[in-house]
Design a protein around this nucleic acid. Structure first.
Length: 556
RNA sequence: GUCCCAGUAGCUCAGCUGGAUAGAGCAACAGCCUUCUAAGCUGUGGGUCGCAGGUUCGAAUCCUGCCUGGGACGCCA
């Protein structure tokens, strides 16, 4: 399946054998053989720095070592075409590219499955992301987290990990009480009654909308009702409304969760008190100033943290610890949280909690999504939910389109801040790289359609060895890297590598397209081979776009 | 003050488990449509990789210090 990786592995083994055969190092001294793919084609298909690494061990000049290795190398193995020693002692390998021909049938046969590997070996990973409080609209920052988390999961899944997506619903804390109070105020205001928004209230237009709807539906019924009952009703109403909107927005954005986890269920199942007991059993709990504290400093946190406040209520951290205990009890090998940059200070105490509960801190990983700065007409816009001036994900999807938004968000590394220019994103110009990639896909589709119309459809017996033009070989090599690229992106949690890859492949396609004619009546054999090549490229681009959650149009 | 992230071409960013001449898009300039979609291609110019030390055969990449920008340092969530 992963032909390129097989070739690379065979080559590594050959190098290792040659090193030992030349007595340059014994098995223990032998460093990891690193093969890199040189940027410069003149440096071959693979390059090894083994001679430099061995310089100290073997006490010889790197170039001399390289010579000895090359002499000991069995070039008949590992598809080696040519070996050169260059620079300070690099060994450059030029491989026979015959194996690349096998790639096309491999890709065409695999179809949508091309790119799959078992790199993750079924490791159970849970990714919790978005988890926005159900108190307002999803905005730009959330959208970035949603896109990142979703594509990360797609990539993990493709690379052979067993992935579960989860959303944590904060439906039990203070913020929900504030939601109830905000709804109450907006409801009363809708009835033209005096009402002030609570100090920490939610000022979004959605809450105003809820107030209006309630006023229309119930008149002043709730204005005269018992306050407790009224707030309880508003709380549930607001929660259902906000959560429903979040779910719809995310689904429309192409993000689906396997599990929506309710904070309330933690209380219902005594998870919170059980978590406190677990910490107490470990001796990490003490009383001070009328509050209950978690000694998180035992695990490197800056200061200890309050779990139960003076007034007897829990801090945010307490149910969150219970939640993470619950996650770990569910048997995941690893749990990943995707958080906004404003929560990064929360990491040390959570790491402390994980360890206090008796788990290795390696099981818990946090991906921080840096801020999104929104620009319009060259002006920076605020995106605070509380000001109500936020540009919502919904608005963005409507104006810019899902494809562009998703692609843009996973083009950059998660720990770089992102400038989002609304004007640029709105204008459907070629400034947006998503069109570039989609265009490559559409171009191929047109060619394949015409191939059929012109009677070139019977390409079953193509001869891949005819594909020797530089740009054809470039395409083949790039496609061969696809499974490894996904595996890398999964291992390093860098979904933007897939976006990068798909762009590069599209670029090679466009370049090829302009240099060579695919459908050539004069040259039926070459045409057959090139049609097969185009089919493989189309599949690879489509699979890459699928991972990003971007459509692969057949026409543009 | 402490901690986290960033600082790479005019702009937005890749590259960072150390490797050969530091890349892409946009912007600028010069070319390419009687031929499969010009939302494309080809070429040119553009860099003290924030600064200073260190580690080594070799540093944008690792270590230390400093500078700049952003964020976090609640018995808020």
């Amino acid at each position: 399946m992963n032909i390129l990786a097989q070739t690379e592995e065979a080559l590594k083994q050959e190098i290792a054998a040659a090193v030992m055969k030349s007595n340059l190092a014994n098995e223990e001294e032998l460093p990891d053989i690193i093969l890199e793919k040189p940027k410069d084609k003149a440096h071959g298909d693979f390059a090894s720095n083994i001679a430099m690494q061995l310089a100290r061990i073997a006490k010889k000049a790197p170039r001399k070592i390289a010579e000895e290795i090359v002499n000991a190398l069995d070039q008949s193995k590992a598809s080696i075409e040519k070996v050169e020693i260059a620079g300070p002692g690099f060994i450059n390998f030029f491989t026979k590219n015959d194996f690349l021909g096998q790639l096309i049938p491999t890709i065409i046969d695999a179809g949508e499955a091309y790119g799959k590997t078992n790199a993750g070996q079924g490791e159970k990973i849970q990714v919790e992301f978005v988890s926005v409080n159900p108190t307002g609209d999803l905005h730009l920052g959330h959208a970035r987290g949603a896109a990142f988390g979703d594509v990360l999961c797609n990539v993990l899944d493709r690379a052979g990990y067993n992935v579960e997506r989860e959303y944590y619903i904060n439906d039990a804390g203070n913020q929900i009480d504030n939601l109830a109070l905000s709804v109450e105020a907006r409801y009363l205001q809708a009835l033209d009654k005096e009402a002030e928004m609570p100090e920490d209230g939610y000022h979004g237009p959605d809450i105003i909308e809820i107030g209006k709807t309630l006023a229309e539906e119930y008149g002043d019924k709730w204005a005269n009702a018992d306050e407790k009952e009224r707030l309880l009703f508003f709380k549930e109403y607001g929660l259902e409304y906000e959560l429903g909107k979040i779910k719809t927005d995310l689904a429309d954005f192409g993000v689906d969760f396997d599990n929506w986890f309710s904070e309330r269920s933690l209380y219902a199942d005594d998870k919170v008190s059980n978590a406190l007991k677990s910490l107490e059993k470990g001796g990490y709990i003490y009383e001070k100033d009328g509050a209950t504290w978690f000694r998180s400093t035992d695990f490197g946190d800056d200061k200890d943290r309050v779990l139960i406040k003076q007034d007897g209520s829990y801090t945010y951290l307490t149910p969150d610890i219970a939640y993470h205990q619950n996650k770990l009890e569910r048997g995941f090998d690893k749990i990943i949280n995707v958080w906004g940059a404003d929560h990064h200070g929360y990491i040390p105490r959570m790491h402390a909690a994980i360890q206090a509960l008796g788990y290795s801190k390696d099981k818990f990983d946090v991906k921080i999504i840096q801020m999104v700065n929104l620009f319009e007409n060259g002006e920076k816009l605020r995106m605070s939910k509380r000001t109500g001036k936020a540009v919502a994900l919904r608005e963005l999807m409507d104006e810019v389109g899902i494809d562009a938004v998703r692609y843009f968000f996973v083009t950059r590394s998660n720990d770089s801040q992102l400038d989002f220019d609304l004007n640029l994103a709105r204008s459907q110009s070629n400034d947006n790289p998503v069109y570039y990639v989609q265009y490559a896909h559409a171009r191929i589709c047109t060619m394949l359609k015409q191939a059929e119309e012109k009677g070139f459809s019977k390409e079953e017996n193509y001869d891949a060895s005819l594909l020797t033009a530089e740009k054809e070989v470039d395409l083949l090599k790039k496609m061969g890297e696809f499974p490894q690229t996904i595996a890398d992106a999964a291992e390093k949690h860098t979904p933007h590598k897939v976006t990068q890859y798909v762009f590069d492949l599209a670029s090679l396609l466009h370049s090829f397209y302009n240099a060579e004619k695919v459908l050539d009546q004069e040259n039926p054999d070459l045409t057959k081979a090139r049609i097969a090549l185009m089919k493989a490229v189309r599949i690879t681009i489509a699979n890459g776009l699928l991972l990003i959650g971007v459509t692969a149009p057949e026409k543009m």
